[in-house]
């Protein structure tokens, strides 16, 4: 039996929970985010869903997996898939990959890595400045967007990791039918 009261902890850290989503937050609550750049956009995910951020490493291609699956990596003995976010969002190829990183997240009990052009910073923003996703957004389906954070000089697209990594069924189905055809 642990000494601490789990409820008390839950209350004090009522911001993002670690399943990759940002829960409905009360007014003025602080969100802790990791921001990164893919293509021309700046994205953010809750820091609690991020397990680690790695430099680019050897990624083993997995034939006959969806196109945006970059492959698998060896994460200290565990094999996890890596998603190419550029391909996932149908952006062009990255020219200079010197700053590229693999962000490893845990979403709905799956550990998944995804590649980003570069990682910006860890930041806290108030939930007050987060707007619901706009109806039309550049290249990304609004389904994957939790909200948009308006910072002084820039906009942060807050990703809904759970949705982003959960809709593989459809894509996979397409892939399979394409292969069969």
């Amino acid at each position: 039996m642990s000494i601490e009261n789990p409820n008390a902890i839950g209350d004090s850290a009522g911001n993002p929970n670690n399943d990759g989503t940002i829960t409905a937050v009360s007014e003025g609550e602080l969100l802790q985010l990791v921001s990164f750049v893919v293509g021309d956009e700046e994205f953010a995910v809750p820091i609690l869903s991020v397990q680690e951020i790695n430099r680019m490493m050897q990624i083993t291609r997995v034939p006959q997996s969806p196109e945006y699956v970059e492959g698998v990596i060896n994460l200290r003995g565990k094999i996890i898939p890596v998603i190419d976010l550029r391909k996932r969002f149908s952006m062009g190829e990255l020219k200079d990959s010197s700053d590229a990183r693999i962000i490893v997240v845990e979403v709905a009990n799956r550990v998944i890595g995804f590649t980003v052009d570069r990682v910006n910073e860890v930041l806290r923003i108030s939930s007050d400045i987060v707007d619901p996703p706009p109806s039309i957004c550049s290249s990304i389906s609004t389904d994957y967007i939790q909200g948009v954070g308006k910072l002084n000089d820039r906009l942060l697209i807050m990703l809904n990791l759970e949705k982003l990594f959960a809709d593989y069924d459809m894509d996979e189905l397409e892939q399979v039918t394409k292969n069969a055809a």
């Binding site: 083993t60 997995v62 997996s65 699956v69 094999i79 898939p81 998944i112 399979v176």
Partner: peptide, 21 residues
């Protein structure tokens, strides 16, 4: 993982150099 299933693979292993095979 759902992303990597489907190919003709029964699993993966880690090689001498740490790479996945």
């Amino acid at each position: 993982d759902a992303y990597t299933q489907g190919g003709p693979f029964s699993g993966a292993t880690i090689q001498e150099d740490g790479e996945v095979c």
